[in-house]
Amino acid sequence: MTEPLLRVDGLKTHFLTRAGTVKAVDGVDLRLDRGEILGLVGESGSGKSVTGQSILGLVDPPGRVVGGRVLFRGEDLVGAGEKRLRAIRGRRIAMIFQDPMMTLNPVLSIGTQMVEAVQAHETVSRAEAWERSRRALARVGIASPDERLASYPHQFSGGMRQRVAIAIALLHSPDLIIADEPTTALDVTIQAQILFEVQKLCRETGTALIWVTHDLAVVSALADRVAVMYAGRVVETGTVAEIIGNPRHPYTRGLLESVPSRNRRGVPLRSIPGMTPSVLDLPEGCAFRPRCDRSTGACTAMPELMGDREDRAWRCWNPVGAEARGDAA
């Protein structure tokens, strides 16, 4: 197998707080090929956002990457210096954040914020940086970009702001965009537009995408592959078809069952009993054990990722559907 664009091995990001060590990300493995779209799915607090930020070394103190490797084009970003990371941020790997109301600086014009992003990585004149910004805005479907560049964020709607953020992310045609729930704060119709455009732009430019979300419906429409996170670990990974059609981890199945669907009209929606455990006080072994209807004595030991291929695996002693196949671990 060729070397993937991004390979995350055993990534651990811990927050050293007064209440104790919060293991927000505790051994995450991911891999992503060029141009591939990965959906990183999980509930609030599962560590999916922190994973995204850890890749670029953007976790705020008291958070710290304490272990693992982030191999981007063969280079380990965990040990990389701030200067090296800065050269990668925005140029090779770009990020889009969840709340478009908060990602643009309210006191700087859109033009200023785009021009500085261009000039951070290339020594070009202001006029040329402005021209590139103009084209980038036009590409994400913003009309009269010249006028828009002179505007300030508060003069834009949420959807427009997210388009601006996407335009900024695309400025340097990065190899990878990490999108942290970029459509969660938007109206459903705007959400669909943004999804469509991001997908189109990534296909056009060959940019790989990590789409962090709690919404399986979004992922199934957008992604090639999915990694499901629970309590700081990846509990299942596979292609979209495999995850949606044949979930093996009970948590993935629970997530799927709690998505409203047109096919099960009138049937009461299932929900996963209990709630996400506090990351300060995780149960021993499999963190999903207290909420799981398939748990057995074996579950007090943490299961390793198991499965047919590296990119089709689950972290469960009693996977869904094991009885029928007789391949229980």
Binding site: E82, G90, N105, V107, L108, Q113
Partner: peptide
């Protein structure tokens, strides 16, 4: 702690620009 500061860092801006422009202009108000 605002997202726009993290976004500014994610754009690859130098710390002097993040602090001297993005943060400073907001705290001056």
């Amino acid at each position: 702690l605002q997202d726009y500061v993290k976004f500014a860092r994610a754009k690859g801006l130098a710390p002097s620009r993040v602090v001297g422009v993005h943060i400073l202009k907001n705290i001056m108000i």
